[in-house]
């Protein structure tokens, strides 16, 4: 882990002002921000760990918890909101049994709501593992979740 962090820090020539992008790259590498990685960033960038922690907890993009294998993001921009995104959010929460921002205990699913994705013509938009699903409604979101569930089940059998 340390080697990877050093590599990322060097990408930015060890410049402290790039703390946010450095953390973004670290998160992309590990899917979240592991504690050890944060200490490495702190050491190699000569920024106190308290400052690193302050920045990590300030910005919404960072997660101190591991994310699930399947990542669902629902756009909660105003355009999606006025077209009923909130009802879809509740449906996804009820289906997965978690609240927005959480990950299921088996680390299979993460669900988050995000600010505007800027695909307002498609609103409401649900992004499933990077793929956009537009004109979302309650029934469609249930269908997507059921399909994902089946895929997860078959993957498990193969394991």
């Amino acid at each position: 882990m340390e080697e990877k962090v050093i590599e990322i820090v060097q990408r930015y020539s060890g410049d402290k002002s790039y703390l946010v992008p450095i953390l973004q790259d670290v998160q992309r590498e590990f899917n979240y921000l592991p504690k050890d990685a944060l200490f490495s960033v702190s050491a190699h960038l000569s920024v106190p760990i308290s400052r690193v922690y302050e920045v990590v907890t300030f910005y919404k993009a960072f997660s101190l918890k591991p994310k699930g294998r399947n990542q669902l993001s629902l756009c909660m921009g105003t355009a999606c909101h006025v077209r009923g995104a909130e009802l879809i959010a509740r449906n996804v929460e009820d289906f997965l049994g978690i609240k927005e921002g959480d990950t299921t205990a088996d680390l299979e699913y993460s669900f988050e709501t995000v600010g505007c994705l800027g695909a307002c013509a498609l609103g409401p938009v649900l992004v499933v593992n990077g793929e956009y699903h537009g004109h979302m409604n309650i029934a469609k979101s249930t269908k997507i979740l059921k399909k994902l569930g089946k895929k997860v089940a078959t993957d498990d059998e193969q394991d």
């Binding site: 002002s17 790039y18 946010v20 973004q24 300030f58 910005y59 919404k60 993009a61 960072f62 600010g115």
Partner: peptide
């Protein structure tokens, strides 16, 4: 270029 961290 500096990428923001997602804070309005």
């Amino acid at each position: 270029i500096n990428r923001g961290g997602g804070a309005f």
